[in-house]
């Protein structure tokens, strides 16, 4: 066992874990933050995407111990004071989901797209940038709309967190 400490959704957490524990297992099984999903478990589908020091990563392909000292944000960390994040709101408004399994990863990736590409996103850019997220309900059309609307809604919000250098 080894001790790992990190900040998850603004809270300091620390636990003893087996070295082979993946970040997604740590989040789901130790912290009971089950909004982050495991889909393919082979870094293809993006259901497990979280922000690690401000960048979208696949938590099924990251060791928890690698994240020692890091800042992690999961889907549970987006809503503030009972209000959904603008990107979450946009997914609801645009019906950007069907079964919802891929949605947490889609939203975490979408916020990362805004960080890198800005608020004015055309459809082509969104579709290219969602390459690492798979929806098996067929629902890309509304997801793309939701990302575009969410990116606009994020204008004037809190400044986007810069990626750690």
């Amino acid at each position: 066992m080894a001790t790992v400490s990190m900040t998850v959704n603004g809270k300091h957490v620390s636990a003893d874990v087996e070295p082979r524990t993946l970040l997604v297992q740590f989040l789901r099984e130790h912290l009971r933050l089950t909004g982050t999903h495991v889909g393919c478990d082979t870094s293809q589908c993006g259901a497990c995407v979280v922000h690690l020091d401000g960048r979208a990563v696949k938590s099924c392909t990251t060791l928890a111990l690698t994240c020692d000292g890091a800042e992690v944000v999961t889907i549970e960390g987006l809503a503030k004071d009972g209000r959904l994040h603008p990107m979450q709101e946009a997914f609801r408004d645009n019906h950007g989901l069907q079964c919802g399994f891929c949605t947490p990863g889609m939203i975490m990736s979408a916020i990362d797209i805004v960080r890198r590409k800005g608020h004015d996103l055309d459809e082509h850019t969104i579709r290219e940038e969602l390459e690492g997220n798979i929806c098996r309900c067929t629902g890309y059309h509304n997801i793309v709309r939701a990302v575009a609307a969410g990116a606009q809604a994020m204008k004037g919000g809190e400044p986007l967190k810069k990626a750690a250098e």
């Binding site: 870094s43 993006g46 995407v49 979208a56 990251t62 990362d112």
Partner: peptide, 9 residues
């Protein structure tokens, strides 16, 4: 290379 999340790691 890969997809955005892969490129971040």
């Amino acid at each position: 290379i890969g997809d955005p999340q892969v490129r971040n790691r």
